Structures are given as structure tokens and as C-alpha cells.
Simulated assay, not measured.
Amino acid sequence: MSRVRLLAMLAATAVAAGVVAVFNMLPASAAACAAAWQSSAVYTGGATVSHNGRNFLAKWWTQNEAPPGTTGVWQDQGSCGGSTPQPPTQTGSAGGCSFPAWVQGRNYVTGDVVKFTDGKYYVAEHDNPGYSPTISTWYWDPYTCSGGGTTQPPTNPTTNPPNNGAFVVSEAQFNQMFPNRNPFYTYNGLVAALSAYPAFAKTGTDAQRKQEAAAFLANVNHETGGLVYIVEQNTANYPHYCDTSQPYGCPAGQAAYYGRGPIQLSWNFNYKAAGDALGIDLLHNPNLVQTDPAVAMKTALWYWNTQSGPGTMTPHNAMVNGAGFGETIRSINGSLECGGRNPAQVQSRVAAYQRFVGILGVGVGAGNLSC
């Protein structure tokens, strides 16, 4: 039962008994403050801290991110050591609501009601760091109020949470992203490759996991023409990818280490490093990247999760730490595309990312889209 309805019932009872009463909003007792947040401390999922008069719950491992933070790791548990602020209420203006405007990047908690840029109102179904109500529909529901009254925010959201054990991209969404893909690139091959890097698309909030998956697939889309090309198309480049200064040389042949797979793995030293990391002898068998769909995807995930290329961080870290999609471009091909070198190529990647997050129902996230 809502607080407003409860007070109305109490008022009616008092009048019936001949008692004149004035009902005020009763102050809510705040919880005791947890131990103060420390920048040097390491917190794991379930840890509770206090900061600036509020308690926060850690959703996963974190260090040196002051609550409420920007990555979504901290869940606001409300005020501590004082009165808890009441949820926003409608002021009674005729014909509609008077809730505050939505602000991108502001932390919202379950039950918050905002007015979005489309002029409509939305209620937070789950805590979130300012995701768009029209994109992140798991976090927001439409909210209706009219006249002098208002529909109360739901107190027990019924939306099912995402299945954290499954890949955040369904097969139907994968097919929607790549309608013209080569049959070599299969959804099952992608899913089979995920075990090689379990942190991929499994780190952070549901939105962050989807954003990382979308970022990876957007770069893959650009590198392969929409998952069409398995191998590098410019065959004239093939003999150039053998670095003979390496002690192991090029045992598969001078022209054997051309670009293959979703992120076009090339050079003998990259085949050696990826193979060593994955437990596959790619130095002697580079063709596995163009004949085994799971191996192909694993090499792409190897680069994504472990290599920074011309950038300063891995693409995985760029997405989970809030640096933004632009830094994934820099780490993959920044020396040729970023800093104004090839804005059309950069925009191609950005456009794919924007399309893919739309398919997954999330916003573009924090950080720069471009590089």
C-alpha cells in the first residue's frame, strides 16, 4: 500500500472518531552509517560503505572509485545517520506532473520519476547511472500521471533481470546485426569462443555488458565488411606480414600470416602470441583462423581482451572502465584512423556501435565515441 493511500485511510478513521488531526509526512529513520569508504581499500560484491552521509552497496569488485561513481558499481542505499529524503511527489499542478527533468549521467534509484526530453515521464525500475529511459528499458518504465493526482511508482518491479549466465546478445540479435554475414561466422562459433575470456561482456552492469558486446561487434563489423570477409582482400599485402627478425621466423611460409578472422589477425608474431595464449599452435597452423569459426572468434577476443595496439589500454578495459568506444578504435587502428587521420573510417565504426546498442536496448555509455 502506498504511503499516500495509507495516510488517507488514517485520516478518514480519525474524522469518523470525531478527532481533529493534522497529518504530516513522518520522517523516515535513516539506517546507521556503514564504515566510511576508503580510496585505498578493495571492495568486493556485497560490501557496504558510507560516503557523504549515504550508504552504498558494491555490486562487484572495485577500488578507488568514490561512491556514487560513474561505472554503476555502487548502488545507493539511501541516507544514513539522519532523515532519509522522501521520493519526489507530484505538486498538484493541473493537467500533469512536475517531476524533475532527466539528466544524463546522474545516478537514479528505484522509484525515481523523471521527465524525459520527449516530454513523457518515466519511473526507474532499477538503480542506474543516468541511462536513457527510451533506450534502457530494463531500467525505466513509462510513468503516467494526470490532473491533480499521480500513479504511484511501483514498489516491487516485476521486470525479470537479465540472465547473467548467458551471452548478452541473442542469436536473433546477432542475425539482425549481420544480415549478410558469411556462413563461416556463426553465432555458435562466437558463443563457443567466449569461454576463452570469461570477463568479456560479463563485467559491470547489464548495460555495460551489452555496451562491450556491441563495441566488439561494431569493430568486427567494420573490419570484415559486416562479417562478410574471412581473409584480407588485398593479396598484395600477404608477403609483408613476416617479421624475419623473430627467432621463430615464419615456419608456415613467407606469405602465410595475412589478415584473417573478425579482427583480421596478421603478422607472424601476433599468430604466435595469440596461439600461445589460446593453447593453439597458430604459428604453424595459421589457416585455423579461417577454417574454424570458434578459433577465429577466439583470436578476435584475444586481441580485444589483452592487446592495446597503438592505444593505451585494451578495448575491454576501455569499455568496462568508462573510457568509451573511441578508445577501442584507437587500440585497434588508432595510428591510421584517430586524430583526424581517417574520420570516415572512424564514423563507420561509431555508426555500427550506435546501431548495435540500439538493437540491445542500451545507451552508448560513458566516454568518447570518437578518437
Rank of each mutant, 00 (worst) to 15 (best):
S79T: 12
K120F: 07
V109Q: 14
F116P: 00
G147E: 04
P85C: 04
P68Y: 00
P153G: 03
G165S: 15
Q152G: 10
P133M: 00
G149A: 15
P157L: 05
T150H: 09
T70E: 10
D76W: 02
Y122V: 02
T89S: 13
G119M: 03
Y108T: 01
P154S: 13
Q90S: 11
T89Q: 09
P162F: 03
Y108R: 06
Q86I: 09
T84N: 08
P85N: 06
G69D: 00
G96H: 04
P87W: 02
V73E: 04
W74A: 03
W140S: 04
P129R: 06
G149W: 12
T155G: 14
E65V: 08
Y121I: 05
P88L: 14
G78E: 02
T158Y: 05
T159N: 13
Q90M: 11
P100C: 04
P161R: 07
T159P: 02
G148V: 08
I135T: 15
Q86K: 09
P154L: 13
G81A: 06
G95T: 04
G111N: 10
H126G: 07
D112C: 02
A94Y: 11
G165Y: 09
P68L: 04
T159M: 10
Q86G: 09
A94H: 07
P153S: 08
K115D: 00
D76E: 04
V109R: 15
T110E: 13
V123L: 06
G81T: 07
A166K: 13
T151D: 09
V73Q: 10
T151F: 03
T91V: 10
G82C: 05
F99W: 09
S132G: 06
G111R: 10
D127F: 02
G69W: 01
A166D: 12
T84S: 11
V109G: 10
D127W: 13
Y131R: 13
P67N: 04
I135D: 15
Q75V: 11
T144G: 08
V103Q: 15
G119S: 02
V103C: 02
V123C: 07
P157F: 05
D141M: 10
Y108F: 07
T150K: 08
W74C: 05
S93G: 12
G111Y: 05
G69R: 06
N128A: 01
Y122G: 04
Q77K: 15
